[in-house]
Each structure stands twice: as structure tokens, then as C-alpha cells.
Design a protein around this nucleic acid. Structure first.
Length: 668
DNA sequence: TAGAGATTAGTTTTT
DNA sequence: CTAATCTCTA
């Protein structure tokens, strides 16, 4: 880490008085530039607390925090490192929202709804019982919000029944959320943007708050995030935007490369620095990556180069099906590790979709090899955690009806559909929360005495915790809550022992985490509860990870690097994904493949299946078009001499015959 | 009302 | 072929 910065890196670090765009190729040391720049700005006299480094994911924020701590800590400025505002866009939005909540009509303890909470609300707004329909409408609404399209504008431009229904729902959406004193993920960006645009004083305050803003992965910002950046930068426009147009992989979430082009138009004095020296990969890996991405139209011309030597050829391996592929990869991995005397943690298996992890998990487990799966179901999405968090949310905010419903029915306490239906009817008529409706005279009259008693006991428990929340440590309150509701007993009673113990353990882990964060950072239960909605992974989880192979989606792997990478499932329909082919967004898939290739430092294995099970049926697969776009002289095809398309043709004939035979056998 | 079995959908990426 | 939803019974 004590290498000197190269010339463009140095330039990027020192240019601090105006708008700067750093086009940082994969592995060109962009995190290093950002942390070095933080140090440089502090050196020049900037107050650390007035520097903001904004990332896209929690993982990136954590990494940035650690790197800054290491760099500044080494200069005896550990305090400064802690003072710098390093967070995701969403966490920054939350901070603004909390500070400005009065102007936005939110109580201090507003809730943050995740898509699961929003789905039933939107279902009601579009008057459907179909979950898929509700989700589609929610998706549309989110798209409009991220593109800063108002409900009225959406209504005016919506075409087609579904879009129109979604637009009508959008018109009433904000009002619905306000009733719950809740915001959604998009609001964390959009509401601050709206506020800063209409309120000059607030805008001035926040522009003063941050003297210099550094943004990582700008190519992944959507319209709302870009606007927030501009509002924070203000007229002084002291910001450093770092990104790589070749790694833009969040178009499906509203990110748009237009922002990168817009930057130059919005800031005529924009300085552009390119980082093209790659410090990560071998020449052959880079040559393939360059060859692949050359098939995309270029926004900025950029060519990565490396001084790390030629390295091994990239291996391309076909497999019979996903199980064979998993076995093959695991065997190759074990052999490779043995030969190089490496660690399992040096290896990553990367794939397009989460469901692809399964075959590899089983194959690794069969060999007794540990693995860490990232990008899968996040910690806070696990049922037991959501159960507990529902209580916390309800303690924080009694208008939070989704949390009420979940908490009141886990563990089961004799309150079922009938009672809840009655309660929500009363709540709707009185225009108040479910929590409040428990005490409404008409509900008390209508409800069964037993259910009523249980409900009141439940509300008393929640009320007691709420009363004590501001004064007492979060950890103790949670421990008491868990004991009070008999959560562990309930788990043991409803699940088999193994599962129950696993869940109890993860709840205990969560409780410990909450207690720690509460004590160390002095965060209240309410603050912690709001933060939880934004966190996808437990901090410091990797530290206690044993020597384990990393399994990850390509999206979740961005920003990471591994000595040895297996890129699997390289088939038409998988990568590029079928939906992307149909939607005509293959370029983004190509960038995804590019991200995958450039994660590798020294060796890269590519594999694909000749057939795959889809909904129980065996389906033939065609090797990904991207394989043909690589630098063929750097590839070595295993198990065949034919190039992939020829081989596929040859196999198709063979596998047809095989299938016919199998069908005959099945018939007897 | 709650839990166990039957049925029936569905397959991208995430703050 | 799963995994989640739905229906039915105790």
C-alpha cells in the first residue's frame, strides 16, 4: 500500500478546487485515489467532518471506511478518519431526512418500508389480489420516483392498462405512506432532493455541511441520486466523481449513463482524469476483457494495461449440465489450489443469478469445503430477523401497520384473520393505525374477549418498551422483549430442532450486534431500527469467515478481486440473460461479463452447460456469445478442440439422440 | 385459529 | 423440480 501514486492518480488526488471526473478502469486503484484524496484534503486543512465519501453499496462504504482508517490511522489521524462521512447514498439520504424531518412532516421515529411491506399497500391501490401485478406496479412507481417523474407526469404519459393503473396508484402512494409515517427506499433520495430544491435555507445548510463530496461508482447513479449530488455540490462544485462507464450494471434500477455525459454539460469546467493502469490482473485476462468490451459503443475511450506479466491462458470448459459443471469446477478448484498451495479464500465462483449458487454450494459441501455465499438472501431478510425487527419497528413507530401485523402474529397468540380483519376495518373507518384501533370502542365491542385481551396485552408490552426506549440501552430492551414474547420457545415448538436452534442462534447474534452498536455508537433503538432497513450484511462478518470459497453474483462481486475466479453458466439466456436479450439490453450484460472477468487477478476459468434443468425439464443450452468476443489466442478450450459454436452443433445432434434413447427407456 | 398436507405457480441483478 | 401459497381439518 505504500506504492507511490502514479501520475494520473496523483493528479486526481491533488485537483481539489473544482469538479472532477475520474474515469477509473477496473483495478486501477480508485478506492486508493479516494482515500488518498481524503487524506490530501485533510492535509490541506479541510475539517474531516465536512468531507463526504458516498458509495453505492454498504460493502463499498465499509471498505472505504476501513481503508481510510488504515491510511489516516497510519498518519496518526484515526480521529479524522472516523469523522469523515462515509456512507451509501441511501444512508446519506436517511441522515438528511432525519435532520430535516420536520419540514417533511415526519415524526422522529418514521419507518422505512421494504418492498415486502409495500406490496400489499400497492396491491390495494391498484385493486388487485395478484402479487405479481402489485409488484409490477410497485416497480413502475419506483422507476418513476428514481427518474424524478411526478405522479401527475406519470399519469399524463402512462400508456397501457398496467402503466395507467400504476400511475393512478402512484398518485395516492405518497399519501398512503404518510399514513404509516413511513418512507420507502427511493424516498431516502427523492425526498431530500425535493426539500433541497424548494428550501434555499436547507440547501445552503447542506452545502455548507460538506466542503467536498466524493462519489464512488457514479456510473451507477440514477437521476435522483445525480440530482442530490448536484444539490450538495452547489455552485462551488467541489466534488470528485469516480466511475467507469464500462462497469455500469444497474440500468435495471434506473441508473443511467446519461449522468456521466450530463456531468460535462452541467459543469463546463469539469476536469477529466483517466486511470488506465491496472494493478490487478494479468495481461491475458485484461486482453480478453478489453476485447469483450470493445463490442460496446464507447462513451469515453479507455484502454487498460498491466505490468503484471502474461499469466496463464483462460480455461474454457463445457459441462453436461449444472451439476456436472459444479462438480467440474470444484474439482478444478481443488486441484488448482493443491498445485499452487493456495487457500480456498483465494477462489471465487461468480454467476449471473442467485439461484445458480445452489449447485455449487452442494458440490462444495460434498467435498467438505467451506463457502461464503454473498448476494443471496441478506441477513436482515431472514424470517427470524424480520420477526424481531417488526417488534422494533412497532416500538419505534406505532403507525407502522405492516410491522404490527407481523409482530402481533409471531409468535401466534390467538389472533387470526378474523380479528385482524375486524381491527383493520375499524382502523380504516377511524383513519388511524391498527395499534390505535385496538383501543377504539367499536373494536372493543366487536372483538372476541379472548382476542381482545391478547391484543391489549401485546400493546401494553410494546407501549412499555416504547416508553423506555429513549432512556435504556437497545440491547437490554431487545433481550427483554425476546424473553417476554417467548420467541425461542415458539421456534422450538413450531420447527424441528436443528432449524429452531439455527434461528435462535441468528436472533442471538442479531441481539448482540444491536447491543454492541447501541453501546459503542450510542445509537438509540429508534436510530438502529431505521438503519437496519438499509443494511444488507452484518458488519465485520467476513472477519470471522474461515478459509472459504466465495460464491457471488456478478452484481455483488463488483469492487471485489480474487486471485482465482471461476465464471460459470456462460450460456445464452443466462449471460446474457434472456430478459435482457428480449429487452435489447445486451450491452449491460456485456458489462456484467466484463465486471466478472476483471475480478480475476491471476487465473480465470470460464464454464458453461450443454444442457440445464428448467422447471424440471432438460433444455439444451448454447454457449454465450460473449465467449466468442474474447481474445481467442488467450483461451484454452478444455475437453474439445472445436470452437464453442461448432462443438455445440456437433453435440446438439448427439444430445438429440441421447434424449430419444432416454425417452424410450422411460416408456419401458 | 393454527398447523399440516395439497396444489400451483414460477426463473435477474439490490439500496 | 422447488418453494411458496392455499385449502382443509382438528
Amino acid at each position: 500500500m505504500s506504492f507511490p501514486l502514479n501520475a494520473p492518480q496523483r493528479e486526481a488526488v491533488r485537483y481539489a478546487d473544482g469538479p472532477l471526473l475520474v474515469l477509473a478502469g477496473a483495478g486501477s486503484g480508485k478506492t486508493r485515489v479516494i482515500t488518498a484524496k481524503l487524506a490530501h484534503l485533510i492535509e490541506r486543512g479541510a475539517a474531516p467532518a465536512r468531507l463526504a465519501a458516498i458509495t453505492f453499496t454498504n460493502k463499498a462504504a465499509r471498505e472505504m471506511r476501513e481503508r481510510a482508517a488504515r491510511l489516516l490511522g497510519g498518519q496518526g489521524k484515526a480521529e479524522a478518519a472516523r469523522a469523515v462521512h462515509v456512507s451509501t447514498f441511501h444512508a446519506l439520504g436517511l441522515a438528511i431526512l432525519r435532520a430535516e424531518r420536520k419540514a417533511l412532516g415526519l415524526k422522529p421515529s418514521f419507518s422505512i418500508f421494504d418492498p415486502a411491506d409495500l406490496e400489499p399497500i400497492v396491491a390495494e391501490l391498484v385493486a388487485t389480489a395478484d402479487r405479481a401485478r402489485a409488484r409490477a406496479a410497485l416497480w413502475r412507481i419506483s422507476g418513476w420516483k428514481n427518474a424524478l417523474v411526478s405522479p401527475q407526469a406519470a399519469l399524463a404519459t402512462a400508456e397501457g392498462d398496467d402503466a395507467l393503473a400504476a400511475a393512478r396508484a402512484y398518485v395516492r402512494y405518497a399519501e398512503a405512506l404518510a399514513a404509516y409515517q413511513a418512507v420507502d427506499f427511493d424516498d431516502l433520495i427523492v425526498r431530500p432532493v425535493e426539500l433541497l430544491e424548494r428550501d434555499a435555507a436547507a440547501r445552503e445548510r447542506w452545502q455548507q455541511r460538506f466542503e467536498h463530496v466524493l462519489v464512488d461508482e457514479v456510473q451507477d447513479t440514477n437521476a435522483a441520486q445525480y440530482r442530490l449530488l448536484r444539490l450538495l455540490a452547489g455552485a462551488r462544485a467541489r466534488f470528485t466523481a469516480v466511475g467507469d462507464d464500462d462497469q455500469a450494471i444497474y440500468g435495471w434500477r434506473g441508473a443511467t449513463l446519461d449522468n456521466l455525459a450530463q456531468l460535462a454539460r452541467d459543469y463546463p469546467s469539469l476536469k477529466v482524469v483517466k486511470l488506465e493502469q491496472n494493478y490487478r490482473s494479468t495481461v491475458r485476462i485484461l486482453r480478453c476483457a478489453n476485447a469483450l468490451i470493445a463490442n460496446n459503443p464507447k462513451l469515453f475511450d479507455k484502454r487498460l494495461w498491466s505490468e503484471l506479466g502474461h499469466g496463464d491462458a483462460l480455461r474454457v470448459t463445457p459441462a453436461a449440465d449444472e451439476e456436472a459443471e459444479a462438480e467440474l469446477v470444484v474439482h478444478a478448484l481443488v486441484a488448482h489450489r493443491f498445485e499452487h498451495r493456495g487457500r480456498f479464500a483465494d477462489y471465487a465462483i461468480l454467476y449471473r443469478g442467485n439461484h445458480q449458487s445452489r449447485a455449487f454450494e452442494t458440490a462444495l459441501r460434498a467435498q467438505g469445503i467451506a463457502c461464503v455465499v454473498s448476494g443471496g438472501q441478506s441477513y436482515f431478510e431472514r424470517a427470524e430477523i424480520k420477526d424481531v425487527v417488526a417488534y422494533l419497528r412497532l416500538v419505534a413507530n406505532d403507525d407502522d401497520d405492516p410491522a404490527f401485523v407481523r409482530a402481533v402474529s409471531t409468535p401466534r397468540r390467538g389472533i387470526g384473520q378474523t380479528t385482524l380483519a375486524k381491527l383493520s376495518e375499524v382502523a380504516a373507518r377511524r383513519d388511524e393505525s391498527l395499534f390505535a384501533a385496538v383501543f377504539a370502542p367499536e373494536f372493543r365491542a366487536a372483538a372476541q374477549p379472548k382476542a381482545r385481551e391478547e391484543l391489549e396485552r401485546f400493546c401494553a408490552l410494546v407501549g412499555d418498551l416504547r416508553f423506555r426506549a429513549p432512556r435504556e440501552p437497545a440491547g437490554r430492551l431487545l433481550a427483554e422483549l425476546l424473553a417476554g414474547i417467548g420467541y425461542e420457545d415458539w421456534l422450538l415448538a413450531t420447527l424441528d430442532k436443528r432449524e429452531a436452534q439455527a434461528r435462535a442462534r441468528s436472533v442471538a447474534e442479531f441481539a448482540a450486534w444491536l447491543a454492541r452498536r447501541g453501546d459503542e455508537d450510542g445509537k438509540s433503538l429508534v436510530e438502529l431500527t431505521q438503519m437496519i432497513a438499509l443494511i444488507t450484511m452484518l458488519d465485520g462478518r467476513d472477519d470471522d469467515a474461515p478459509d472459504a470459497v466465495r460464491l457471488s453474483t456478478l452484481h455483488a462481486a463488483k469492487g471485489l478481486e480474487f486471485p482465482h475466479v471461476f465464471l460459470v453458466g456462460l450460456e445464452e439466456g443466462i449471460l446474457p440473460h434472456r430478459e435482457a436479450i428480449d429487452a435489447g439490453t445486451v450491452e449491460e450484460e456485456r458489462r456484467l461479463m466484463y465486471v466478472g472477468l476483471t475480478r480475476a487477478q491471476r487465473s480465470l476459468h470460464l464454464s458453461y452447460c450443454r444442457s440445464r434443468k428448467r422447471a424440471g425439464q432438460r433444455v439444451d443450452c448454447v454457449p454465450s456469445r460473449f465467449l466468442k468476443e474474447l481474445a481467442q489466442e488467450d483461451l484454452r478450450y478444455a475437453g474439445q478442440t472445436l470452437p464453442p459454436d461448432e462443438a455445440a452443433k456437433a453435440r446438439a445432434a448427439g444430445s438429440d439422440r441421447l434424449r430419444q434413447l432416454k425417452a424410450l427407456v422411460a416408456k419401458g
